[in-house]
Write a protein that binds this DNA or RNA. Structure first.
Length: 484
RNA sequence: GGUCCCAUCGUCUAGUGGUUAGGACACCGGCCUCUCACGUCGGUAACGCGGGUUCGACUCCCGCUGGGAUCACCA
């Protein structure tokens, strides 16, 4: 049997990092087994589902490079297009007395829960409508439809004897006593199926062999399995991944700051880095830290998945991003950095070769594309601001003459503006004025970049080019000698 | 509170009865050096507790403690 896994996000918000990790693992498992990865959109909740959210999910997945074999835009993979199927399933359960109408109001249910809590009893539904409808009436009862006056819900008649065992691929067997499973609502009074019911029909209809999801779904699993049984179907295999927590040890959520895929994209992270970080959170392959997507496909398995929750560590993600900053082809970084330059309101250089040369001098000093652009300010803008403290320390009158000599030497280089030629020019000035490189490099650095921190001075000069270098040098001489 | 899950450095993890308990991030030092970085070398740091099983437990079992998830007409 070929493996088929699915990822079923709900389009009710941004694509969350903890959530997408579950999708990634389902994807990797499918690819590892040369199976299919299905993307399904759980949008039964019309009120909370939005088109923007759907677009964000799709775009996030595309950006990450997670490719689904089946799914949107095919409407078939939207729960909202499958209501007939859900109705059919619910009716079948009703006719077979495996489900029943419940006439309790939301308020009533709420009061029931509160009372149970007060009296330290189980907060679940007590089954008071379980036998309210006669067997014969179950043959004719219709599905709820508030507008048509059929204001009730449909509940699943959960078995009260025995136990349900979830033989989880990651956690091992978990035994749930069926008495713990209350009769859950499978159809709301507005005629919309609920998640636990719809997902069962979907997983079956789409031939899902392995349900891979976060372990927050583990308590749902025995209920879903019972629905499979009631429908006369065999449940798929389950693999419940441990959760991703925030630094406070609680389930990762919006209040932990940047948690969406888009957030990291906009912060200047590479998709490779995010994927790489996520895959190592809860999975390992010996001591290896860096994985390409194809390596993930090759090595991924549930046996190497950890069982315990992991805390999201932004610092390590940053380090991995830095790794890719240093390793990715410079052409790729040049392509990716452009939107970030534009976002700054700066002009994107037309010369890609020059941009790449610039990036080569910066890439081991910037951990994200945002940082890269900030650092590149003096390359990208003709107007530089000289840090007053740096100027006071390095642009003093006594260095002006040497600076002038550097400008003249560099200017005389003409078209041979290679780093080697630049270095030779520096050495001539150093010898003439009897200076050490450090004594000359820092003033030049301040003159060219406005600050005391930059890539190697020869690199900076080579990238800046003759005209801009000489102009900045001359401006600095003016500043150093107190001129206007 | 009920149910379920989990437990190795601060964090992510390797480890599947006998190891000086390994790696990575972070942190701290040395080296390299025109600044900052990169790189490189080294360092600090962990098996939650208590019982078993065993010649021998980080590894297996039980209990405790601790953490987490979940108990909707959300998904």
């Amino acid at each position: 049997m070929t493996v088929r896994t699915r990822y079923a996000p709900s389009p009710t918000g941004a694509l969350h990092i903890g959530n997408v990790r579950s999708g990634l693992f389902a994807y990797l498992f499918a690819r590892h087994n040369h199976g299919a990865f299905i993307l399904r959109i759980d949008d039964t909740d019309e009120l909370r589902s939005t088109a923007e959210s759907l677009e964000e999910i799709l775009e996030s997945l595309r950006w990450l490079g997670v490719e689904w074999d089946e799914g949107p835009p095919d409407r078939k993979y939207f729960q909202s297009s499958r209501f007939d199927r859900y109705r059919e399933g619910a009716l079948k359960l009703l006719r077979e007395a495996k489900a029943y109408p419940c006439y309790c109001s939301a308020e009533e249910l709420d009061a029931m829960r509160k009372a149970a809590e007060r009296e330290h009893r189980k907060p679940g539904y007590d089954g008071r409508c379980r036998d309210r409808t006669a067997l014969a009436d179950l043959q004719t009862v219709e599905l709820p439809d508030k507008k048509a006056g059929r204001n009730y819900t449909i509940r699943f008649r959960s078995p009260r004897e025995g136990a349900t065992v979830v033989d989880d691929l990651i956690k091992g067997p978990a035994v749930f006593e069926n008495t713990e499973l209350d009769d859950l609502i499978i159809f709301r009074s507005d005629g919309v199926p609920t998640y636990n019911f719809a997902t069962v029909l979907d997983d079956f209809d789409f031939g899902i062999t392995h349900v891979v999801r976060g372990d927050d779904h583990l308590p749902n699993t025995p209920r879903q399995m019972q629905i499979f049984y009631a429908l006369g179907l065999t449940p798929p295999a389950y693999a419940h991944l441990p959760m991703v927590m925030g630094a406070d040890g609680q389930k990762l959520s919006k209040r932990h700051g940047a948690t969406s895929v888009f957030a990291y994209r906009d912060l200047g992270y590479f998709p490779e880095a995010l994927l790489n970080y996520l895959v190592r959170l809860g999975w390992s392959h010996g001591d290896q830290e860096i994985f390409s997507l194809s390596e993930m496909f090759e090595y991924f398995d549930f046996a190497s998945c950890g069982k315990s929750a992991g805390i999201f560590n932004a610092e390590k993600l940053l380090w991995i991003n830095f790794h890719y900053m240093k390793e990715l082809p410079v052409e790729r970084i040049a392509r990716d950095v452009k939107p970030f330059i534009a976002k700054k309101g700066w002009t994107i250089p037309g010369d890609d070769a020059w941009l790449e040369q610039m990036i080569a001098t910066l890439r081991e000093r910037a951990k994200t594309l945002v940082e890269l652009v900030e650092f590149a300010s003096f390359y990208l803008n003709d107007e530089i601001t000289i840090d007053p403290k740096a100027a006071a320390k390095f642009l003093k009158p006594e260095i002006a003459e040497a600076l002038g000599a550097v400008a003249a030497e560099l200017d005389a280089l003409g078209d041979d503006f290679s780093e080697a030629a630049i270095q030779a020019a520096f050495e001539r000035v150093l010898a003439r004025f009897n200076l050490k490189l450090g004594q000359l490099a820092q003033p030049v650095r301040v003159a060219l970049t406005g600050g005391t921190v930059s890539p190697g001075i020869y690199e900076v000069i080579a990238v800046l080019g003759r005209a801009r270098t000489v102009a900045r040098l001359r401006a600095a001489i003016t500043l150093a000698t107190g001129g206007t």
